[in-house]
Amino acid sequence: MAKIDFSSRVGVWWTSDAWPIRDVQPHAREIEQLGYGSLFYGEAAGKESLTQAAALLGATERLAVGTGIANVHARDALAAEAGSRTLS
């Protein structure tokens, strides 16, 4: 299991479903540069959760990224675990 070392005890919850991911990535970098340790978001109708995590992780260096809500109807438990292992 991957060890997560949060660089800060303070994180950000942000919903960016209406934004294209290419516009969200610079904001994730800014959140990281401001000293926040994590960025959390929910999965609603706009973006698939694990794909969004990959895009945010690829745009940052140390930011912990997580979904606060992953829709159980969008993927089964095995797919969610496999996605998590891929991202970590």
Rank of each mutant, 00 (worst) to 15 (best):
K3W: 01
K3I: 09
K3E: 01
I4W: 02
I4Y: 02
D5M: 13
F6R: 05
S7D: 06
S7V: 14
S7A: 13
S8R: 06
R9T: 02
V10A: 06
G11R: 10
V12I: 15
V12G: 01
V12H: 03
V12Q: 04
W13Y: 13
W13E: 04
W13Q: 07
S16G: 02
D17M: 01
A18T: 15
A18I: 11
W19K: 11
W19P: 00
P20V: 00
P20Y: 01
I21V: 13
I21T: 13
D23M: 05
V24H: 06
H27S: 11
H27E: 15
A28E: 13
A28S: 08
A28K: 12
R29H: 02
E30S: 11
I31D: 04
I31Q: 07
I31S: 04
E32N: 10
Q33A: 15
Q33W: 00
L34Q: 14
Y36R: 08
Y36E: 07
Y36K: 09
G37Y: 03
S38Y: 12
S38F: 05
L39S: 07
L39T: 15
L39E: 09
F40C: 05
Y41C: 02
Y41E: 01
G42A: 15
G42K: 03
E43M: 03
E43A: 05
A44R: 13
A44C: 06
A44M: 11
A44T: 15
A45M: 13
G46L: 04
G46I: 07
G46T: 06
K47S: 07
K47D: 01
E48S: 10
S49A: 15
L50I: 00
L50K: 05
L50M: 10
T51H: 11
T51D: 12
Q52A: 10
Q52Y: 03
A53W: 08
A54K: 01
A54T: 11
A55H: 13
L56A: 05
L56W: 09
L56D: 13
L57M: 14
L57S: 05
G58L: 02
T60L: 07
T60W: 09
E61S: 07
E61A: 05
E61D: 14
E61L: 00
E61W: 00
E61V: 01
E61T: 10
R62C: 07
L63K: 08
A64D: 08
A64P: 00
V65W: 03
V65F: 02
G66V: 01
T67C: 09
G68H: 04
I69N: 07
N71S: 11
N71D: 15
V72T: 12
V72C: 05
V72P: 15
A74D: 09
A74Q: 11
R75V: 04
R75A: 12
D76R: 04
D76A: 02
D76V: 01
A77K: 03
A77H: 03
A77N: 06
A79F: 00
A79Q: 12
A79I: 04
A80M: 10
E81Q: 15
A82S: 14
G83C: 02
S84F: 11
S84H: 10
R85C: 09
R85Q: 14
R85G: 11
R85H: 12
T86D: 02
T86M: 12
L87R: 03
S88G: 14
S88M: 11
S88K: 09
